[in-house]
Design a protein around this nucleic acid. Structure first.
Lengths: 354, 354
DNA sequence: AGCGGCTCTGATATCGTTAACAGAACGATT
DNA sequence: AATCGTTCTGTTAACGATATCAGAGCCGCT
């Protein structure tokens, strides 16, 4: 592969002159520039950004997005937002899936640090990610968090209003006649799970309904919907079975829907269902699921813009938190409840199962 | 940030010795190695892979995946397969969306070449990508194609059996009593669209049904389902309206489903529907859509393995084509046709619309 | 003529790392 | 004691680019 020396030789100038033509970093006589450009073209010369990066001590115009799992449609949306913004600013994007595993996350961080990426977009693995994030801060590598933040973290952050979104879903369920609402939570490690649980409690409290810890199932995994099956088992085993379920995210809701059907029941006939985050092709699912839909794509674009601003300088900038409100989209999954099965009498299907 | 010199100074050795400890490239006395390792730890030294790459003339252990759109679930699946395999082999992955635009694709190629990525995984933008691919070949940069290949391309390639998959879907539709089957195609630029059209024709031919060009709608875009709406309009305008539709990919099928409903019709009541590629949360969609599902994740892992083998050497290896068969998954979208509406009498809903 | 200030170009040093060579230290063999 | 082969370490030169400085050439002004 041609180097700047080859171009220089062919054009009969010094490498430095070629560099100046490439970067327009100093005036070059038109005639000389012409010769250089011709040589560049003839050799189809592509400058080596790695070498540029070493000497200029800048990154190689690479951003990194470290997130749970690109397959989750919420993550996919974020990723596309990040990539578009990166591309518009002439950066390329490295994508890493940590599967909510802090060790995998740390491995990526070290790898990416050694690549001198310019900055990180980060959906952290959970509270344990704090050490990993400290590593970035330690190395002076800029980053912006998306969607989640470890306990006690202060710094640039773009996320949804989980507390109010969740409370609003609860109010919606209450307004449809449900007073016993199960909550399928995510890992307590993860801020979104905590905040949505808080919102769940808040929503109940606002309607003067007592919070019953029995109704909360602590899913230990977020990204596969498998936690939903034991959650359903637990709910069905309760003396007073909930008539509605709020799932902490999209995969849990899908898992719940499948689990319900596996047992010959259905939504909304036997359970009303609502969840956080968009489900793919939502409009075609039967029943359509009531959801608090977050603007994932915007999470990505906004976070990337924040990061790029940091990279451009403005070093004494204060930390910024940007909280976007989810859109509550009512679906069929929360309609058609007859208000007969109250807490005093057991859930009809529950009888069949127990 | 600490460099190899800082470590060397702290350990009281030369940088070269540190390098040898890091890379185990030559024996180092245990006691010296201990001092070096301690210094590395104390400084939390991270080697600069860009500098390593410059001097060793290897890439920086970066692969690139250039594809249409990460948001398409098929692409997402491929991406995850690629990323997992890359990660297992200590590579990181740059992801780029070209949106079927060859110019965008070329821009990425140049950018990635300048980053000296070790290799490319490529779902090309279409036949026009041939020039871009030639650019890679020219620079001696290894690559493997996935899912699509430009006309006349020979080289490493992993894809699905589009012809037979499509033919099989046609046979399935025929077996359900449909003899007039509309085909919503993708851009003729793209090999998968061509091959699936061929398969469509093959399937008809195998059952001695004459191919009617009127029944083919040439969608000029693949990735947004919008082509499906004009396709439906065209089909409804035909003297003899098809009773079934084969969509060239998942987004077109979804678009078609939406378009049908927008007009107050439905699937499968008014049209049977089948398509290529998986639709997200397929099992929950109503109706479930009959599809030829390709093992997207495996496309990614296999292609990446091929690429890594190339990188490891074995230079005179022949080109390899790996063709994976799609799984035909029958759904509700192709059931319940009453066999009354034959070609001789017009489609019932068509009357209402025309 | 002398000076200052442009524009243009090249020589040299440098970035962080490794390749290639050279040499020191040491025990084992002749 | 000389030689050899290890093992271990350092020196020097590169990799492909840019920063920095210095100087050449030219113009215009005093």
């Amino acid at each position: 592969m041609a180097t700047i020396h080859d171009v220089a030789r062919l054009a009969g100038v010094s490498p430095m002159t070629v560099s100046r033509v490439l970067n327009k970093s100093a005036p070059v006589k038109a005639e000389t520039r012409g010769r250089v450009e011709l040589a560049i073209q003839k050799l189809d010369y592509v400058p080596n950004r790695l070498a540029q990066s070493v000497v200029s001590r800048n990154g190689a115009r690479i951003l990194a997005l470290v997130m749970p799992d690109i397959v989750n449609p919420f993550c996919t949306g974020v990723a596309r937002g990040v990539e578009d913004t990166a591309q518009n600013n002439d950066y390329v994007l490295i994508i890493c899936n940590h599967d909510d595993d802090p060790q995998k996350e740390e491995g990526y961080f070290r790898s990416l640090l050694s690549l001198k990426v310019d900055g990180f977009l980060l959906m952290p693995s959970g509270d344990k990610a704090k050490r990993n994030i400290a590593l970035l801060a330690d190395k002076g590598c800029p980053f912006v968090l998306i969607d989640r933040k470890p306990r006690g973290y202060v710094g640039d952050y773009v996320a949804g209003d989980n507390v109010n979104g969740s409370a609003e879903l609860v109010r919606l369920l209450l307004s449809r006649g449900h007073s016993r609402i199960g909550f399928i939570s995510g890992p307590n490690q993860i801020s979104t799970a905590r905040e949505r649980l808080t919102g769940y409690q808040l929503g109940l409290q606002q309607s003067c309904i007592k919070f019953d810890p029995e109704l909360v199932f602590p899913g230990e995994s977020f990204e596969s919907g498998i936690a939903a099956d034991p959650a359903l088992t637990k709910f069905l085993g309760l003396a007073c079975v909930p008539t509605a379920v709020l799932a902490c995210n999209n995969t849990l809701a899908i898992g719940f829907l499948r689990a319900v059907r596996k047992r010959g029941m259905d939504v909304p006939a036997d359970f009303a269902l609502a969840c956080f985050d968009k489900i793919a092709v939502m409009d075609l699912i039967k029943p359509t699921v009531t959801a608090a839909i977050q603007p994932a794509y915007n999470f990505g674009t906004i976070a990337t813009q924040l990061l790029l601003e940091k990279l451009r300088g403005s070093p004494v900038e204060k930390h910024r938190e940007i909280i976007l409100r989810p859109e509550i989209v009512p679906g069929e999954s929360t309609e058609g409840y007859q208000h007969t099965a109250l807490c005093s009498e057991p859930h009809r299907k529950a009888k069949a199962v127990n």
